[in-house]
């Protein structure tokens, strides 16, 4: 679907600087702007968590348990209320953004390295190399990701490192598939043939000529897989086999709030909405980047 190559953009470069062109397109793209704004806000919140959080997210107060948020008649002391152990919900939400973003970024980065390497190699060499790459992709796709992640976390214990590693090792398939076809198209281009004729070394060709031309595809997949990693972490934590408490993770907050689902449903609504908004924004950002960098005329 997203076999975008940037050669038309290169052609336009003669008329207008590609960067300015992109900026202009981005500015007009409402989805992209909305996604970009939200994601950068969340990133900022995550970075500045210690400054923004009104309380220590781990500090318990057993005498102030499950205080309701302001909009449900609670006090301003705890704007989003407190959880079952009297911890400030807003502070936990703010620190939770760190966990989600970090897992999303690092897991997607690991996946990107694995998937890109495989995809570019397969797409460039074709033949047997490509067959092996496609085989690996098939094997990976055949393994049920949620189950394997659950099993591995259960065997090795839940910690941030384990969760990130497992997700990183599981989410590379789309990178490989998309970059493989993108590379195949780039491979046909004249400048690659020229570089080969000029005797440029293979790593150099891959690094200098191929990679920059499949970058757009890479970024789009990166955002999608970030969202994927965040949603999977939340699901794992929700099932009790992800990040371990008392770490504030949004999935874990939903899991803990579930105890009072029938009576204090805001406990799951608040982190759920935060998760939803972040995922929505990342998806919009990804779609936006694809639209903006796509050649003219594509929808």
């Amino acid at each position: 679907m997203t076999q975008t190559i940037s050669s038309p953009a290169l052609r336009d470069a003669a008329v207008d600087s590609p960067f300015r062109l992109l900026m202009r397109k981005a500015w007009k793209h409402r989805g992209f702007m909305a996604g970009f704004l939200v994601v950068s806000t969340v990133a900022l919140i995550a970075l500045l968590a210690p400054l923004l959080a009104p309380y220590d997210p781990y500090k318990q107060d057993l005498l102030a348990r499950m205080a309701r948020p302001v909009f449900l008649g609670g006090e301003w002391k705890h704007i989003l209320g407190t959880d079952a152990l009297g911890r400030d919900y807003l502070s936990r939400l703010i620190y939770g953004a760190r966990v989600s973003l970090m897992i999303g970024l690092v897991a997607a980065a690991i996946s990107a390295v694995i998937g890109t390497t495989l995809g570019v190699l397969g797409g460039y060499f074709g033949g047997k190399v490509d067959a092996v790459v496609m085989f690996l992709v098939s094997v990976r796709l055949a393994l049920p990701a949620t189950l394997v992640a659950l099993a591995v976390v259960a065997l090795f214990g839940g910690s941030l490192t384990v969760v990130i590693t497992v997700l990183g090792l599981l989410l590379w398939d789309r990178f490989a598939v998309v970059l493989r076809s993108a590379t195949m198209q780039v491979r046909q281009a004249d400048y690659i043939a020229a570089a080969e004729v000029l005797g440029a070394s293979l790593p150099r060709i891959l690094w200098k000529d191929v990679l920059p031309n499949v970058m757009n595809a890479l970024i789009v997949i990166m955002t999608l897989e970030m969202a994927h990693a965040i949603i999977l972490e939340a699901a794992l934590s929700f099932l009790g086999l992800g990040v371990q408490p008392p770490t504030p993770s949004w999935g874990l907050m939903i899991s803990e709030g579930k105890e009072m689902l029938l009576f204090e449903s805001w406990l799951i609504t608040i982190p759920g909405i935060a998760l939803f908004v972040l995922l929505l924004a990342i998806n919009l950002l990804g779609d936006g980047i694809r639209d903006i960098t796509a050649p003219e005329g594509r929808n």
């Binding site: 969202a227 699901a235 999935g251 689902l261 449903s265 759920g272 998760l275 995922l279 929505l280």
Partner: peptide, 21 residues
């Protein structure tokens, strides 16, 4: 776009609260 962004476990819980409770 919205469908992609809703975590299914959360969606499930919300549906339980609304439709069965």
């Amino acid at each position: 776009v919205v469908g992609q962004a809703i975590p299914s476990f959360w969606f499930g819980l919300i549906l339980i609260v609304i439709f069965s409770v």
